[in-house]
Amino acid sequence: MQFTLIATALMAFAASAVSASPVSNEARMILDVWAPKIISPNATTVWAEGQQYNVTWDTSDAPVNISNGAAVRLGKDKVLTNTTLASGFDLRQGWVTITCPSDVIPGDDYSIILFGDSGDQSEQFTITETLESVLGF
């Protein structure tokens, strides 16, 4: 008897889930995915460890609704790292100031990944040591 009640309840739940109405066009517009083109850094950019820089992106085609919080993360050799450089800003702003990490290995295979509605990756650029770290002060 209990088995029959549980089976009936599960079937009723499944039937109600299947008969849910489709997503309206208005709801789909709220969930628009936007992957803005990152303008800077680009392939000619060189950052020095510990210095501040602006990450910029094109906002000309930004949707009205951006559903997720924004974040800028560092990539190395086309792979996302655990280094978050900025978060909690408005993507419609088109830029955010970050500090280049001091604990990275200098190289020419870094990128920026911009998160919001979608992740977008910059061209690879170079991070160098600061003059102070090279000279030891």
Rank of each mutant, 00 (worst) to 15 (best):
P101S: 10
S19E: 05
R28E: 01
I113F: 03
I39G: 00
S19V: 01
A7E: 13
L74I: 02
Q51R: 15
D32T: 14
Q52C: 12
Q2F: 08
M1H: 02
G136I: 06
S133P: 10
F13H: 13
I105M: 10
W34Y: 08
A17V: 14
V46D: 10
N42W: 07
S67A: 15
P22K: 09
R92F: 01
I105C: 05
S16L: 13
G75R: 09
G75M: 12
T128Q: 12
L31R: 15
G75N: 12
F13T: 14
P22E: 12
V46C: 03
T99H: 05
G116P: 00
S19F: 00
A62C: 01
T84I: 14
T130Y: 04
F3N: 12
R73D: 11
K37W: 01
M1D: 06
E132F: 06
M1E: 04
V55P: 04
V18Y: 04
V18D: 05
V134L: 13
E132S: 11
I113G: 01
N65V: 15
S21W: 11
A86R: 06
G136K: 07
S40I: 04
E129Q: 15
V134P: 01
N82V: 09
I98D: 05
A70E: 11
T83E: 15
N68P: 02
A35T: 07
F125W: 07
S16G: 09
V134E: 09
R73Y: 15
A20P: 02
D117Q: 04
K37Y: 02
V72T: 00
V79S: 09
P63W: 03
G94M: 07
D109C: 04
Q124N: 13
S111V: 06
D108Y: 08
I66D: 04
D120M: 10
Q93N: 00
W47C: 03
